[in-house]
Amino acid sequence: KMTIRVKGKELARRIAKEMKDRNLKVEIHEHGDEVILEIE
């Protein structure tokens, strides 16, 4: 399990899509400006 902190929703969406393309499970937690992606 891996956690990534990202500034900006646009970048977070791009990373999430990339991870889904690799068949990984992604959970997205938004905290205002910061987005936390949990990847399994």
Score class of each variant (00 low, 15 high):
Met2Arg: 15
Ile15Pro: 00
Met19Trp: 05
Ala12Asp: 02
Val26Gly: 01
Lys25Val: 10
Ile4Gly: 03
Val6Ser: 02
Lys20His: 09
Lys17Ala: 12
His31Asn: 14
Val6Thr: 03
Arg22Ser: 05
Lys7His: 12
Val6Glu: 02
Gly32Asp: 10
Val26Asp: 00
His31Glu: 14
Arg14Glu: 11
Glu40Asn: 11
Ile15Ala: 00
Arg22Val: 04
Lys7Phe: 06
Ile4Tyr: 01
Lys9Cys: 15
Asn23Val: 02
Leu24Ile: 12
Lys17Trp: 00
Val26Ala: 01
Asp21Glu: 13
Met19Pro: 00
Glu10Ser: 07
Leu24Arg: 04
Asp21Lys: 13
Glu18Pro: 00
Asn23His: 10
Ile39Ala: 03
Asp21Ile: 04
Ala12Ile: 04
Glu27Trp: 09
Lys25Leu: 10
Asn23Ser: 07
Glu34Ala: 08
Val35Leu: 09
Lys25Gly: 04
Glu27Asn: 11
Gly32Lys: 07
Met2Glu: 12
Arg14Cys: 15
Lys9Tyr: 04
Arg13Glu: 15
Val35Pro: 00
Ile36Lys: 03
Lys9His: 11
Glu30Phe: 14
Val6Gln: 01
Lys20Arg: 15
Lys20Trp: 08
His31Gln: 12
Lys17Met: 09
Lys20Cys: 15
Val6Asp: 02
Leu37Gln: 01
Ile15Ser: 00
Glu27Val: 15
Arg5His: 13
His29Glu: 06
Ile28Val: 09
Leu24Met: 11
Ile39Asn: 00
Ile15Cys: 14
Arg13His: 13
Glu38Phe: 13
Lys20Asp: 04
Ala16Trp: 02
Leu37Val: 07
Lys1Thr: 07
Asn23Arg: 06
Val6Arg: 00
Arg13Asp: 14
Glu34Leu: 13
Leu37Pro: 00
Glu18Thr: 10
His29Gln: 08
Ile39Arg: 00
Ile39Val: 10
Glu40His: 11
Met19Ile: 07
Ile28Trp: 14
Leu11Ile: 12
Ile28Cys: 15
Glu40Met: 13
Leu24Glu: 02
Ile36Trp: 14
Ile39Thr: 02
Met19His: 03
Leu11Trp: 01
Gly8Ser: 14
Glu18Tyr: 11
Ala16Tyr: 05
Lys7Gly: 05
Leu11Glu: 13
Asn23Leu: 06
Ile28Phe: 08
Ile39Phe: 07
Met2Asn: 10
Gly32Leu: 07
His29Ser: 10
Arg14Val: 12
Lys20Phe: 10
Glu30Ile: 13
Glu34Cys: 14
Met19Asn: 01
Asp33Ser: 07
Met2Lys: 14
Val6Lys: 00
Val26Asn: 01
Arg5Gly: 05
Lys7Ile: 11
Arg5Phe: 04
Glu38Cys: 14
His31Gly: 07
Val26Ile: 06
Val35Ile: 14
Leu24Asn: 03
